[in-house]
Amino acid sequence: MRDVAIQGVSPTFGSTGAGPMLETHDVARHFDVSRPLVQRLMAGEGRRLLRAVDGVSFAIARGTTLSLVGESGCGKSTVARLVVGLYPPSRGGVTFDGQDLAQARREAAQRRRMQMIFQDPYASLNPRWRVADIIAEPIRAFGLAQTRAQIEARVAELLTQVGLSPLDGQKFPHEFSGGQRQRISIARALSSNPEFLVCDEPTSALDVSVQAQILNLMKDLQARLGLTYLFISHNLAVVRQVSDRVGVMYLGRLVELAPAETLFETPRHPYTKALMEAIPDLEMTGRQRIPVGGEVPSPIDPPSGCPFHPRCPLANDRCKAERPEMIPARGTPQTLVACHAVEEGRDAA
């Protein structure tokens, strides 16, 4: 069983012939949230570690979108920052196009190929810079255009590409609405001709009609430029629209990883099912929803065994004691799931 499990988490799973764009191998990130030394000594307590991400493995094939979904505190945004090198991993590794990420980050030519889009359109643009300078920053940093005229032409092209006017470059961010700012963020990200884009909740601060604009724009750009996306969201409906593969995270771990259609049609992990249950029913079918009970525990002191067991309707003694590994699910071998109940066939319903 153990061998199967290890093969199952093999990060090359599902990659294309050219090798995946990005892989993570059991990557973890812990934050020291201890109180200051003196206070700690007086209270006689040890160090406290917040295990924001605790062993996550996945691969993203070129030109595809992998989405990570989960509730706040599940570690999805930390994964986003790990794979662009904003945080060094506490354990495990990340490879970008076959090369160790830390190494790749040291080379401008490699760094140029990865970019990030952030959640908050009001904090992601420097309020003191003109839009043209914001978008031109990566161009200047990587020396992608030499003369002023070339830079200006490229900025104008990028602004047009994201649906803004080249004249908007002379304005400051506060002159734009949330959706327009997110377009500026996208233009900045595209300005270094990246191949891999990490999108951390790019639409969750936007109104729904604007969200549709941004999602459509991101899809268009992916089709046109062959971009690879790591898409972070808490919104399953949004994730369904953009993803090729979807990973569901809970308390710093992946609990299910599957092709998007498989995941939405036949969710396997009880937590995935609970998340789907929680989505309000717009089609008004009159379906009675059964909300999952309990709340997300603290990642400082996660439950033993399977982190979901205190809320899980299928939990038994094994779930409390033994941490499940990601293995192919019975019935849907495309799905990797970390659940004893699925493994034992107790989830048949």
């Binding site: 609405s177 549709a212 999602l215 459509n216 629209q241 717009l282």
Partner: peptide, 23 residues
């Protein structure tokens, strides 16, 4: 337009209906 721009969880659309511009 508002209803149409809500992404459905039940199916995948090639393109979401969007309202151009902003309030």
């Amino acid at each position: 337009g508002l209803m149409g721009s809500i992404p459905p969880v039940g199916r995948r659309l090639d393109r979401l209906q969007q309202i151009d511009g902003a309030m």
